[in-house]
Design a binder for these strands. Structure first.
Lengths: 348, 348
DNA sequence: TTGAAAGCGCTAACAA
DNA sequence: TTGTTAGCGCTTTCAA
């Protein structure tokens, strides 16, 4: 139920009158245009007298410099685009937040460009549109196939950084060592005495994402059976359905989920079906979602530092903007966080 | 632990060579600049012959129109700024997502401007910086005090829309009927037989936020005692501490939380202290967080349509951009969603 | 259908 | 210290 009401009136001038230009200010202040510019930018000395008149005129006219004109003449853009398939999912929004914070500290703004489908066409169109804006550079979130397509569609002469995804020596990249982290959490489960570890995945940027590779590595290394992968969607409810299904299978004693929200869903599904976590089944996640700590049982997980990831991506981009042409890579190793959702298997 | 590695090489040209201009294209194609422009914009007929040569030249040079120049000459900006204190918290990110989706459909981009502290100074500085960008208009998220400050700092001649917060007839506003929703969920609790309802709040845009007003209204209307308000932070862990504390108080049988994440925290705190939800204490939230459905017990809550809220905000802004100077308001009534976290009080 | 000319709002280079 | 001149890259008259 939505309602829209109208209040005509008192703001008629807002959209109609065109904004004051620097020439208007110059006229009102009785000085030349460059003098106004000098006051604005502080690039050169202006006599106190004229400076005051300029400031007065600016105030009187409510003048603000035109960003497009400034960008045009200076050739410096202060906007960077983040191209992504998602903005509201935890990992994405936390990464974007990290980018924004780092960018803001350096005087840059972040524009969001969402590309919904991983098709060549859509990526192409999105890239063309976004390049129509006055951009300094682009950060591509490559958590999923959309990022891959976007990177392919990007022309070669624009500064860009990839976040996560496949390693490449063509493009600078900020990432988290997911393979090692996946190995670590699976080894941890194995060390608890589980014969093997089942794996529920979230949608990935390619056939197999890095945490899945880590899972497989650890299993093979331990000589454990490698069960079939169970795919989930980004929606935690898909985890619930999977949990209910898995509850019926007695051979399932440990489950490694692609992220914490899916882990929560799986735990809920398991509990709904009468299985206790971690007494009957151990479940671990990935990411360290803000709610992972307050969930009961607390979710054992890998603490991905998404804001830090975003910050590192921005730093890599900034290096390019400052003229450093080298392709660079920034990685970090996320720690295992042990809580209560995993334990030894029930002795049978 | 972060590691940065450098791969010098093959991309040296990227940052150095300056991009091709429309004049370059004209020269290569052997036509005049306006002809290239005509091909680009499709504004006028161009002979197939020249058109092909232009297209070829564009391709050869990897030419892309300069966004700043276009914005300057056309006077039309395609970027709208969202000014907010937060981007990663559920309600904020879901609203921003709604704005982005609606904006993208109309060919606009969204730039994020985060203002961390609700001080006049910081709001002023943020507004000045963001207005230095080529913006079409601004959407201010007024879920908290930052939005209020930002709105005060905004010059009068820029198109703007407020999302949520205090009603005003100075500025267009998209909001959700929180007062009525707050009343409804508290009445629901009262109808279950609870003598009164305690209230845990999240940080608000003013002394008392709308859902709190609704809570108070419903209590007063029913002649129930109005307990002291318990403030929480945005962090769900603060809810856990509050839940533990409240567990000791036998008079607390129903708790209305400012959002679902706090409700989850409170439930966890209550459970940690040995109290059962909803058998011993009923707890309800607000927002309908994606995890509210899979939490156990499922959280009874108010389903705020944040993406819809964002969409409506954009539509209001677009009306202004299209020359409609009237101040308008768009509201919607969010429904109560009954799950399992609330029930009748235990008979004593 | 095409090109020449003008101009968007601003900053930078040059003289005065 | 100041003003004049030029020019950023593009679109939009205006003639031809």
């Amino acid at each position: 139920m939505t309602e829209v009401s109208q209040y005509s009136g008192h703001t008629m001038s807002r959209a109609t009158a065109k904004p004051a230009s620097i020439a208007d200010v110059a006229r009102v202040a009785g000085v030349s245009v460059p003098t106004v510019s000098r006051v604005l930018t502080g690039a050169a000395k202006v006599s106190p007298d004229k400076r005051d008149r300029v400031l007065l005129a600016i105030d009187e006219l409510g003048y603000r410099p035109n960003g497009a004109a400034r960008a045009l003449v200076s050739g410096k853009q202060r906007i960077i685009a983040v191209m992504t398939s998602e903005t509201a999912i935890f990992g994405y929004s936390a990464t974007i937040q990290g980018i924004e914070t780092a960018a803001r500290a350096e005087g840059y703004f972040v524009v969001i460009s969402v590309v919904e489908n991983p098709t060549e066409d859509e990526a192409q169109r999105a890239v063309e549109l976004v390049l129509g804006q006055p951009l300094a550079g682009i950060i591509v979130l490559k958590f999923d196939p959309v990022g891959v397509r976007v990177l392919e569609a990007l022309p070669p002469d624009i500064p860009r950084v990839a976040v996560s995804g496949e390693v490449s020596d063509e493009v600078s990249q900020a990432s988290i060592e997911e393979v090692a982290a996946g190995e670590e959490i699976v080894r941890y489960l194995l060390s608890l005495g589980h014969p093997t570890v089942h794996h529920v995945t979230v949608p990935a940027s390619r056939d197999e994402d890095h945490r899945t590779t880590g899972w497989r590595n650890a299993l093979v290394e331990a000589g454990a059976e490698v069960p079939e992968i169970i795919p989930a969607t980004w929606d935690a409810s898909s985890g619930v359905r999977i949990g209910r299904r898995l509850a019926a299978d007695d051979s399932v004693t440990a489950i490694f989920c692609g992220n914490d929200e899916i882990a929560m869903g799986v735990i809920t599904g398991l509990s709904d079906a009468g299985r206790n976590v971690p007494a009957d089944v151990s479940v671990v996640g990935f990411d360290d979602h803000p709610l992972a700590r307050i969930w009961r049982p607390g979710i054992t997980t890998i603490a991905q530092d998404f804001p830090g990831l975003g910050r590192r991506a921005f730093e890599l981009l900034q290096a390019q903007l400052d003229g450093d042409a080298a392709v660079a890579r920034s990685t970090s190793r996320p720690p295992l966080v042990v809580r209560e959702s995993a334990g030894p298997p029930r002795v049978r």
